[in-house]
Each structure stands twice: as structure tokens, then as C-alpha cells.
Amino acid sequence: MKIALIAHDEKKEDMIQFAQAYKKLLEQHVLHATGTTGKRLNKEAGLEVIRHLSGPYGGDQQIGSLVADGKIDMILFFRDPLTAQPHEPDISALIRLCDVHGVPVATNMATAEVLVKGIENGLLEFRRVEKREGKLQ
């Protein structure tokens, strides 16, 4: 699977802790991330990550483009609903794209854990089936 990881500034530490906890599972997949989050995931969690631009420079939009092209299977976007800064990515457009294209998205650690457990238990197999049948690119 191809998994995108994005975190608002106040949630980056949560993302690192999550990635460290699920490193063995995450490293089996192709990981994409926005700039700063990807840099920290690589350095602090030891994960190989395809880095896009930082959120304020359009990294979330680059990931959105991959969603629209069928090249992302899941997004973990740890958002800060209370103190998000104006320069941080807006999640609403990305969620809309995920809904349009049937891509599961988690906005907090608890939901991310459910999705990751789903991968472990083969519960997200529909993405692979759709790709094999040509419904997804």
C-alpha cells in the first residue's frame, strides 16, 4: 500500500510516536509525507519516506494529486483542531478528495490505529482488489 503521512505542527510529535510504535508495519509500505513531517519520520523513526513539499508550500496538494491519480491508498493526517496555524495545510479539500476516490483517511491517532490494524488484519484488501481489476490506477 501507499500511505501518506501529514501532521500539523502541534501533532508532529504524535505522528513520530505513532510511526515508532507501528514501524514494522509501516516500513512494509511506500510512505509519502509532507516535507517537515517526512524529514522527522526519516530521522526520528528511521522510516524511508518520499518527501513532498512542506504543507505551506503545497505538499498537501501534491499528495491530493496522488489521491486523484489513484496513487495513494491511505492518508494519516494528524490535524490540530484547536491551534492550527494559518500556514498549515487545510484538510477539508484533502478529505473531500479521499471521499470522492474511496481513500481511507484518519485525522487523529486513534483512527489511524484502527486503519493500521485493518492493514494488519487484511481488512483493507478492497484497495488491492480494485487495483487488480483496473478500477484504480
Rank of each mutant, 00 (worst) to 15 (best):
M1V: 06
K2S: 08
I3Q: 04
I6M: 13
I6C: 03
A7W: 12
A7I: 07
H8K: 07
H8V: 05
D9H: 09
D9C: 05
E10H: 13
E10S: 13
K11I: 01
K12H: 05
M15T: 09
M15K: 11
M15A: 06
Q17T: 11
A19G: 07
A19M: 05
Q20L: 14
Q20D: 00
Q20Y: 13
Q20P: 02
Q20I: 14
A21V: 02
A21E: 14
A21G: 00
K23R: 15
K24Q: 10
L25T: 15
L25N: 03
E27G: 03
Q28G: 08
H29R: 05
V30M: 06
V30F: 07
L31T: 06
T34W: 06
T34N: 08
T34I: 08
T36H: 06
T37V: 12
G38A: 08
K39E: 10
K39H: 13
L41H: 04
N42C: 13
N42G: 14
K43G: 00
A45I: 11
A45Y: 14
G46S: 08
G46I: 12
L47M: 07
L47D: 02
E48R: 14
V49D: 04
I50R: 12
R51K: 15
R51E: 07
R51G: 08
H52D: 03
S54E: 07
S54P: 12
G55S: 09
G55D: 10
G55R: 05
P56F: 11
Q61A: 10
I63Y: 08
I63E: 01
G64Q: 08
S65V: 12
L66H: 07
L66P: 03
V67N: 02
V67I: 15
V67M: 02
V67F: 00
A68S: 12
D69I: 02
I72F: 03
I72S: 02
I75D: 01
L76K: 06
L76E: 03
F77W: 12
F78Q: 03
R79K: 10
D80Y: 14
D80A: 10
D80P: 06
P81D: 08
T83N: 11
T83S: 12
A84D: 03
Q85A: 04
Q85E: 09
Q85K: 15
P86C: 10
P86D: 04
H87E: 14
E88L: 06
S92N: 07
A93E: 04
A93W: 04
L94A: 02
I95N: 05
I95Q: 11
I95V: 15
L97W: 01
L97N: 02
D99I: 11
D99F: 15
D99E: 09
V100T: 10
H101P: 00
H101I: 03
H101A: 04
V103L: 02
V103W: 00
V103M: 02
V105N: 01
T107I: 14
N108R: 12
A110K: 11
A112W: 13
E113F: 06
V114I: 14
L115S: 03
V116M: 13
V116N: 03
K117E: 13
G118I: 11
G118R: 06
I119G: 01
I119D: 00
E120C: 03
N121V: 01
N121C: 01
N121A: 05
G122S: 09
G122I: 14
L124N: 00
L124A: 00
E125A: 09
F126I: 11
F126L: 04
V129M: 07
E130P: 00
E130R: 14
R132S: 10
R132Y: 03
E133A: 14
E133W: 09
G134L: 10
Q137V: 14
